[in-house]
Amino acid sequence: MTAAVFFGCTFIAFGPAVSLFLFTIAREPLRVIFLIAGAFFWLVSLLMASLVWFISVQISNKESVSQQKGLLIFGVVLSVLLQETFRFAYYKLLKKANEGLLALSQEETMPISIRQLAYVSGLGFGFMSGAFSVVNILADSVGPGTVGIHGDSQHYFLSSAFMTMAIILLHMFWGIIFFDGCEKQRWLAVAAVVASHLLVSCLTFQNPQYVSSLVPTYVVMFFMGVWAFYTAGGSLRNLKLCLTCKDKDFLLANHRPR
């Protein structure tokens, strides 16, 4: 019956991401392409980080506990910085690509806005990093055993799945904030993204005290989500309008063919 755990964890980790994909991305081929390209960029950053890690582990002293601990911290920081660098690189690339797309398209406007690109690429990053962090855990969740013979918490699978969900959503929010920051030259926002990414990654050092890593991560996620919401053009007024279903006249007033 451990298939239940497998499906439960898969749904938790990828449920939000998959539903976002289904409703907002799958229908438009251009978005799918940018999503996969974003995932690929994240993958390249992973490759670089693991190369550096591989070399540094080889040359390090395997006996020394403190050195190994330091190496791990170094690896995490390096990986985060590399991921953000590649996000920036992807942004630059998309700017270039957008010009090209504009030249190609018959209409005057761009077929996809930079905000949409930010969201799509952020989700792409999220998908890939989520997959990499949880896939081999999922593989082992099929059973027949569960974690704990060495005294670890048996909520390992559940907390891993929730952590992955947070990471995927965070990548999406970071993507939106980061691109907006670059677009408007607000380097503080970019710095905030890098800092919160570092913070979340370092929070996982708290494991296996899952509460002390999950709770702050979700707090960060909440703030990032609010920020991203405002960045994307949302506001409290819009939310209210939306919730109270007073959108009809608003829609009529603002509706323009795209």
Binding site: F54, L72, S79, A139, S160, T204, N207
Partner: peptide
């Protein structure tokens, strides 16, 4: 090795014990 590294880098392994998940479950 890479998988283990990534497990460590991304998230889920406490401290320096880069054990794979299987080692946490089975003896």
């Amino acid at each position: 090795n890479k998988w283990i590294v990534y497990l460590a880098l991304c998230l889920f392994v406490a401290g320096i014990n880069c054990n794979s998940v299987e080692n946490k479950i089975y003896v």
